[in-house]
């Protein structure tokens, strides 16, 4: 079913859920997770393959979790709070789900269709060159995992060269960042050459997109799922009432 959805519907769902998830807490994220697992099964993507594919991103999430949980106060003393641990978990969970949705979109939709859908959305926006903008947003999505992958590689390489011996955090940051930038700009340069070699041009024939009944069903299901956010907004005050009342 997911393969047959119109890419415009998939993007609208991605946009809608991203906006709604900002207010979503545990109940919404749990129901959203169940839906994502079902979608992965339906699309024929194994969770183990997905985890292997995003292993560096998972490490990155762990890093974010650590940064958000352990805080250094104005006296430079690190401390751990349960509240910030809960908030950090929600942020990481939300990020993981959005990435899952992005992977699902990429795995079940041709790149040309994603670009065509974005051009359709950006067409009415004045000033913006919708064809170039759509290509660039597509490239951002492709570059994000590459940056994280290269970041993981460079961290390992710097550790192998005893970077921990350098105590100055600015020196460590500069050493990491310069190598990271050099590597990813080399990757980008090769990518640009490959685009040139394939005679890249903005004026390409776009694939034809059509809405069907399945799109209506999918939008209705997501709309229903969004109602689980009400549990978060209702349950929290009730919990507080019992807890402190």
């Amino acid at each position: 079913m997911i393969h047959r959805l119109d890419p415009r519907t998939k993007q609208a769902i991605l946009m809608g859920i991203s906006v709604v998830s900002v207010w979503g807490q545990t109940a919404f994220l749990a129901s959203f997770s169940i839906m994502m697992i079902l979608c992965f099964r339906s699309a024929g993507i194994r969770i183990s393959d997905f985890v292997r594919e995003i292993r560096y991103f998972l490490l990155f999430l762990l890093f974010i979790y650590g940064l958000r949980t352990i805080t250094i106060d104005s006296n430079w003393i690190p401390f751990f709070s349960l509240e910030s641990a809960g908030d950090a978990m929600v942020v990481c969970w939300r990020l993981l789900l959005i990435v899952m949705m992005g992977v699902l979109l990429v795995a079940t939709t041709r790149t040309a269709h994603i670009r065509a859908a974005m051009i359709w959305y950006l067409g009415p926006v004045p000033v913006v060159n919708e064809k170039m903008a759509a290509t660039m947003v597509g490239m951002i999505v492709r570059f994000l995992p590459l940056i994280l992958f290269r970041g993981g590689e460079i961290s390992d390489a710097l550790r192998a060269r005893c970077i921990e011996q350098r105590k100055n955090p600015v020196v460590r940051t500069v050493k990491f960042t310069i190598v990271l930038f050099r590597r990813i700009f080399l990757d980008a340069d090769e990518f640009a050459l490959a685009m040139q070699a394939r005679c890249y041009n903005e004026q390409r024939t776009l694939p034809k997109l059509t809405f069907t009944r399945i799109d209506v069903i999918a939008v209705a299901m997501v709309f229903l799922l969004s109602f689980s956010i009400l549990f978060d907004t209702c349950v929290s005050p009730i919990f507080l009432l019992f807890h402190f009342g």
Binding site: Q11, M15, V22, I98
Partner: peptide, 12 residues
């Protein structure tokens, strides 16, 4: 467009 690119992994 909803991609989680703003601070705290938010978008929209």
């Amino acid at each position: 467009m909803g991609l989680p690119v703003f601070s705290g992994g938010t978008g929209g």
